[in-house]
Design a protein around this nucleic acid. Structure first.
Length: 881
RNA sequence: GGGCUCGUAGCUCAGUGGGAGAGCGCUCGCCUCACACGCGAGAGGUCGCUGGUUCAAAACCAGCCGGGCCCACCA
């Protein structure tokens, strides 16, 4: 039972985790007892490693699932990883580049083998790191978005939606990432403000007239212009509508058309229209049935349609065209212009809007169902304020481009015949089908990685099979994620689940914020302020990191994290450890005459004031913790337990318990510690489990019982306001005496003699807490009198009691007189303040009686105090002379 | 342009209608028989500004100032 003096998490934590996992404490079965509770992990990227954001996300999930287990619920946490198409492919391509190779050198099959090797090598890294954090996942249920079972589900969903007409292939304007050479969806594009230029250039009229001046930020797209548009009511250009102008360099004659979209106030009021390279222009092109000329290659150089500029990179082409406009007299002017430009969120290069054949999901019918689910409250957001933005986004969705020109991912199950006909197959086509339909090849593209992860909440439970797991745990309870992926992932899960299963995938979305550095700055490699959670765990322990993250993480708010907070977490763990050492030692756990936790509390009659007080404070802490956990707002629970254990249990109750050797105090000690460990366990699972084991006299050989599976505490004695008020008197008396000691520089070891004037409940409380007061304030003799004693005394007021401390031989007269003067001034100020309030008629007539009465009492108290201080000072003057 | 959010002690943040709090940092005193990863005592704040509601505002309302974030196809 000997616990070492300091808590060393680094050795204990991994051992404990292994013990939990090996003994099945994380595992749940669908037919286990208890109300079901399920969380699916946001699957981390297969080749990733644990960063601080994961640490926060998974700590929150772990807290929720651990508490649910302790509440007796049939709780499961489903773990797994995401194949993360583009991200993973990029990593492997980078490795190849170091060997001087590209994926094309290997070919598709060999490249994929290479990615699978990489997945096998590094795919489990992050899951091991989650274990180190303490994540109590049910590892027997680990899934991967690209394993056979999940792949089959993806294919089924693709085919189902295709059959319903909700997935289609079409020529649309999409976001093209020229570096990754793939299409992207709208939300994979970040709008970044850049300083660019606005080029004003003249397109001469086909009949030799002066034509029209247009303004553009992207002059190179002129190569694909197929119209100039003006506002229908713009008188300046009315004469040109229906006429034609000539695009320089490519000598194309294009019409001037009228379209409402054009803002006459902006630029020249005339817009060049490039339907193949701009979303607005595309819309105009569709409305007016304009030709759409793609002038770019896959890597965003000008293609053959660009005439003399073919082969130039898009930015070189821009500069060259500006120069040529100048030399050939088409240029009017170039202005500086700041505007938003779409960049690939993956490769960070400017995306190119481009006309392309891709696969799309018709999202409107799905979005309607998701919107309805959120409006009905079937799924709610924590914090609630995130709801509006989410709904706004869903209401303005464009169709989702799901095909990617990548190799790593779910390949689109579509085949083409020689005439360009498209055939979608639930099972790969047989030889016979290939021959019969004249199929030439399978679609080369793979699906957006989010297409598979949107199925995560139910494919992890075995869907599309009707498994017991689905029956028990679906819909899941809470999805924990940063607000930054509500659109990417949460929205898609909600849409597809309400559509395919007719149910929401989870009841609650708990959004947390981003982890930032100590000064609230975003962590980034370029700032050099990135904190590695694994380093922190190695130094301070997982419990310390968990505490540091949770204590400052209310829903939806960013979390500032500095190493000092983690250090604070370690100190807290160490404090708890030492509290436990003392409790276990005093209670004699494991000794024949010792008490055991199972004994429960002593009879009420055997409880002393401080016993009743600490039990009432435990009750209060429990209520704070429960309210916080129930609201999915863990921070107040973490802070509340810190406060209870440190400031109340350790600083007060333990100090008083040291004075006692009765069985009752020991029973209270172990009962309170046991409850505190349970309440804190979700936040700091390791240290609490370890202590709990000792407290219960268990060893690792007892493999069938653990704190993490024990019961969540209920009420012990309930509230006890009388004890709380009584003990508050003791606390105030002690604190005031300590202050006095500090003020007079009385050495810690010098005991003092105190004479108190007190009556009624205050006197009773001081009686009840007398030995405590003596010990904690270093009091030798505490006596009660009806008046101030003679001699040189220091005086303090505490909880309505007057305390006189003998100062003979301790301080000199002048100092004490000055002190009393200060006190008198304070008292007079306080009295004036209360009188001021009472002289306000509306306060007296409108404020609640109790509030007014309290003010009156204050006036009376301070009046009395002033009288006594005045008397004391004059006595001193007389005596001291 | 639209939406959200924050502004409280040197730093990071709790508090959300009845006399300003925590952690860290700082000062002073303590190796007190659980813990120096500790104990005790302090210093430090016009609670962004202005107005309003109220007997009473850090808290509720409005406006303003100053940060941050998200969304948006103005060429």
């Amino acid at each position: 039972m000997d616990l070492p003096k300091s808590y060393d998490p680094t050795a204990l934590e991994p051992e404990l985790y292994e013990w939990w996992e090996d003994n099945g404490f994380f595992h749940a079965e669908a037919d286990d007892d208890g109300e079901p509770f399920a969380i699916v992990i946001p699957p981390p990227n297969v080749t990733g490693s644990l960063h601080i954001g994961h640490a926060l996300d998974n700590t929150i999930q772990d807290v929720l699932v651990r508490r649910a287990r302790m509440q007796g619920r049939n709780a499961v946490w489903l773990p797994g990883t995401d194949h993360a198409g583009i991200a993973t492919q990029t990593v492997v391509e980078r490795q190849l580049a170091e060997e001087g190779l590209t994926r094309h050198d290997l070919g598709r099959e060999a490249f994929l083998e290479r990615v699978w090797e990489w997945k096998a090598e590094s795919g489990g890294t992050i899951l091991g790191q989650l274990r180190r954090l303490g994540a109590s996942c049910d590892w027997e249920r680990e899934a991967f978005t690209f394993d056979d079972q999940r792949s089959a589900a993806v294919r089924k969903v693709f085919c189902d939606l295709h059959e319903e007409g909700l997935i289609y292939r079409g020529l649309r304007l999409i976001n093209w990432d020229p570096k990754a050479a793939t299409a992207l969806s709208d939300i994979e594009v970040d709008h970044v403000e850049v300083k660019g230029s606005m080029t004003y250039m003249r397109y001469p009229a086909a009949d030799g007239g002066e034509g029209v001046v247009v303004a553009t930020t992207r002059p190179e797209t002129m190569l694909g212009d197929t119209a100039v548009a003006v506002h229908p009511e713009d008188e300046r250009y009315a004469h040109l509508i229906g006429r034609t102008v000539v695009v320089p360099f490519v000598d194309r004659e294009i019409p001037v058309i009228a379209d409402e979209h054009v803002d006459p106030e902006f630029g020249t009021g005339a817009v060049k229209v490039t339907p193949a390279h701009d979303p607005n222009d595309y819309e105009i092109g569709v409305r007016h049935d304009l030709p759409m000329i793609d002038v770019m290659t896959d890597d965003a150089a000008i293609n053959a349609n660009g005439g003399p500029y073919a082969g130039l990179d898009r930015f070189e082409a821009r500069r060259q065209i500006q120069a040529d406009l100048q030399t050939q007299g088409y240029l009017v002017r170039i202005e500086e212009h700041v505007h938003q430009v779409g960049h690939s969120s993956r490769t960070k290069v400017p995306i190119e809007p481009r006309l392309s054949d891709q696969w799309f999901v018709d999202v409107a019918p799905l979005a309607d169902k998701a919107i309805a689910a959120v409006r009905d409250g079937r799924t709610t957001f924590v914090p609630q304020r995130n709801t509006k933005g989410f709904l706004d986004w869903l209401e303005n969705l464009h169709d989702w481009c799901i095909s990617r020109q990548l190799w790593w991912g779910h390949r689109i199950p579509a085949w083409y015949d020689a005439d360009g006909g498209v055939h979608v197959f639930r099972e790969d086509p047989t030889e016979a089908q290939i021959a019969e339909l004249g199929l030439t090849h399978q679609d080369e593209d793979v699906l957006d990685t989010w297409f598979s992860s949107q199925l995560w909440p139910f494919v992890t439970l075995g869907w599309p099979e009707q498994t017991p797991e689905m029956a028990t745990w679906f819909p899941t309870d809470v999805l924990v994620t940063g607000y930054d992926i509500n659109t990417f992932w949460v929205s898609r899960m909600l849409m597809i689940s309400t559509h395919l299963l007719g149910e929401v995938p989870f009841h609650t979305v708990l959004n947390h914020g981003l982890v930032r550095d100590a000064h609230g700055k975003k962590m980034s490699k370029s700032f050099g302020n990135v904190i590695d959670p694994l380093d922190l765990i190695a130094t301070y322990g997982a419990d310390a990191l968990r505490y540091a993250l949770l204590r400052a993480a209310p829903p939806g708010q960013d979390v500032p994290l500095a190493e000092e907070w983690v250090e604070g977490g370690r100190r807290f763990a160490n404090k708890l450890w030492n509290v436990a050492r003392l409790v276990i030692d005093r209670a004699g756990i494991g000794t024949p005459e010792g008490v055991s936790v199972d004994e429960g509390l002593p009879a009420d009659a055997d409880l002393r004031l401080e016993d009743r007080w600490i039990l009432a404070r435990l009750e209060a802490a429990q209520q704070v913790a429960d309210a916080a956990y129930d609201a999915n707002d863990i921070a107040p629970a973490a802070r509340g337990m810190y406060h209870f254990i440190w400031d109340e249990l350790a600083d007060w109750y333990l100090e008083l318990a040291k004075l006692r050797d009765d069985r009752a105090s020991k029973q209270v000690l172990v009962t309170v510690l046991d409850a505190a460990l349970r309440l804190l366990h979700p936040v700091m699972p390791f240290v609490t489990e370890q202590i709990w084991r000792s407290l219960h006299g268990l060893t690792p050989a007892d493999t069938d019982v653990a704190l993490m599976r024990s019961a969540w505490p209920g009420t012990l004695r309930g509230a006890d306001p009388v004890a709380e008020q009584g003990f508050a008197v003791v606390q105030e008396v002690v604190t005031e005496l300590r202050k006095l000691r500090a003020e007079y520089d009385i050495p810690p070891k010098q005991r003092i003699t105190v004479s108190a004037v007190a009556s009624g409940e205050v006197r009773a409380a001081m009686d009840a807490g007398q030995d405590g007061i003596q010990r904690l304030a270093g009091v030798d003799v505490l006596s009660f009198d009806s008046a101030a004693p003679d001699g040189l005394v220091g005086k303090v007021l505490a909880a309505g009691a007057e305390l006189y401390v003998s100062l003979d031989g301790i301080v000199d007269l002048a100092e004490e007189r000055a002190r009393l003067e200060r006190e008198l001034a304070d008292a007079q100020g306080e009295k004036r303040r209360a009188e001021g309030k009472l002289s306000n008629d509306s306060f007296v007539s409108k404020a609640p009686e109790a509030v007014v009465a309290a003010e009156r009492q204050k006036v009376a108290d301070w009046t009395e105090a002033i009288a006594k201080l005045t008397e004391q000072i004059s006595e001193m003057d007389t005596a001291g002379g």
